[in-house]
Design a protein around this nucleic acid. Structure first.
Lengths: 135, 135
DNA sequence: CAGCATCCAATTAGATACTG
DNA sequence: CAGTATCTAATTGGATGCTG
């Protein structure tokens, strides 16, 4: 017995009300994977990629933040870190099957942002002008 | 001409390399909508909801953060703020059509986190134990 | 090459008190 | 009821220098 909410699978229904509990396991997960760098990293990791190539392809990311994001994704089982037996040392990052499976929902979300970015910018301008537009 | 990446619609292809530009409009959008409270707020806003009911149903959110999240969602055109002509003053939040259209990609992402949360927790424990599991 | 360590600036969040 | 204001604590991020 549950009503027709799209989100909230892990939320509890208390007295007919959907409540998003703080112990819900989806919370830290969303926190960790739904940030912009994670999404872009996983986009680039369509194929195995080296650290410096990742840096070059994610314009604006710093070494520190990229490293942290990679560690977190690795810890969450989304990516694999492979040390290559080359001379100056090389590290390659690649998606795990779990990470692969995230590409699809991420893709939907990303596609949505691209499709609606113009509309969102309009809304922002309208809001910043005189609050709340007619649209 | 573009290769088969799922994400990166708005990225530029330079010399055969997909580069995620810092001016890409999807960046601030992802920043703003892909945080945990926005997702949960929009989940609750399946139907119009008052401020205090939102607070009650989003366990752990503070008044301050909820207000900020709501303002941001409103600014981005995702939700509408309606002042009700009741006696002590009531405010009702509801999704705009734009916000409605986000529920589907959000739903996919949320469903994914629920489906895979056990697997992710396993990966985390394995990582925290002795780095990088066999899986 | 692929980081880690450190320092510091800035942003964000919690707690608390007050208001139309 | 639905916030705003303020202060402070904690987190995050950039910059820089160093290393196996």
């Amino acid at each position: 017995m549950r009503d027709t909410y799209l989100l909230g699978e892990a939320a509890n229904v208390t007295g007919g009300q959907v409540v998003f509990r703080s112990e819900c396991p989806s919370r830290p997960i969303l926190d960790q994977i739904a940030d912009k760098w994670s999404m872009m990293i996983m986009a680039v990791l369509e194929r195995p990629t080296r650290f410096n190539e990742l840096m070059r392809r994610l314009e604006g990311v710093t070494q520190r933040v990229l490293t942290q994001s990679l560690r977190r994704l690795e810890r969450n089982g989304m990516i694999r870190r492979t040390v290559l037996p080359t001379s100056p040392v090389g590290v390659e990052y690649s998606l795990t099957p779990l990470g692969e499976s995230l590409r699809e929902p991420f893709g939907h979300l990303y596609a949505w942002t691209v499709e609606h970015s113009a509309q969102i910018q309009q809304a922002q301008q309208a809001y910043d002008h005189g609050t709340t537009p007619t649209a």
